[in-house]
Design a binder for these strands. Structure first.
Lengths: 146, 146
DNA sequence: CAAAGTATGTCACTTTGTATCATATTGTAT
DNA sequence: ATACAATATGATACAAAGTGACATACTTTG
């Protein structure tokens, strides 16, 4: 079992939940994808392994994993929600409001902001997601023409 | 006309759009609310002024204003999308994954990151939205007990 | 005024997400 | 090992959120 799934198992059990085959599949799918996945994509890939996993389970599981901080839920403006493993502490996106291009930014972008916020507000196990929305240069030029 | 709505009018016309009564009402409602509003709340308040404004128009308008960068669309995990005037350059939230409490953070939190990103990636009129998700101290304590 | 471009309202529809509940699985105590 | 409680799933129906198509209306321009 991969470290991420293994660790997820512990997190689940600590809170009285179980790592069922369905949850295992969902975690694996999210872990193995190199990119963030939509509910649709997750469903598709899970059902390739076992077509009888129900949509309810997928929604319930994603909600649970989100609450436990095991998956990160990205909700960029004008996009479906996407899910990815919450392995790092941060994941940042630069988005064009016009063409909707998405650029992933460096995790380390915000320095030690994480620790700062935890201290200042008494929060725990923080993850940071920055959404920077603007116009890419191409779209900007297009817009100026009009 | 308030400065924000006035400026929105210019932005719209520059791109060949009009500030119709419906758009004016929607902008005003968003501007006058001290907090960010859901589609529901916006609809309710707009229809108090004129009950014949249709839902389609509200969705279409929000999408347009978002694309023009006149309203900011916040999509926090486990929350409905919320809208607020995009007057400042940034708006940051600290969210508890368990009780879903939301704390608004200082606009200036990220320093000159805005300018940095614009230069580095050639983006224009950037707005930054940081979502910091974790557990508030109360929830954290609760969770440890189990 | 006429024509073109822009915007709205209505309604049907799709998509996305939720609630309920019977059934199944797992964990715990005896 | 068995019985019981707790947890999890699948199915179905349902609710909520959002979209598309199109006829009508309003503005702008000439």
């Amino acid at each position: 079992m991969h470290q991420y799934v293994h660790n997820s198992n512990e997190q689940l059990r600590k809170r009285g939940y179980r790592l069922t085959p369905q949850r295992y599949m969902i975690l694996s799918v999210i872990q193995e994808a190199g990119e963030h996945l939509s509910v649709d994509q997750i469903t598709e890939r899970v059902q390739q392994r076992n077509p009888y996993v129900s949509l309810s389970t997928i929604y319930r599981t994603l909600e649970l994993l989100r609450e436990l901080g095991l998956v990160r839920e990205n909700r960029l403006p004008g996009e479906q929600p996407h899910y990815e493993p919450a392995e790092g502490q941060a994941h940042h996106h630069l988005v064009c409001r016009r063409c909707r291009a998405i650029i992933h930014l460096d995790e380390a972008l915000l320095g030690n902001l994480n620790e700062q916020l935890q201290e200042q507000y008494g929060f725990h196990s923080l993850t940071l997601d920055l959404v920077a929305a603007g116009y890419c240069d191409t779209c900007w030029q297009e817009m100026q023409k009009q």
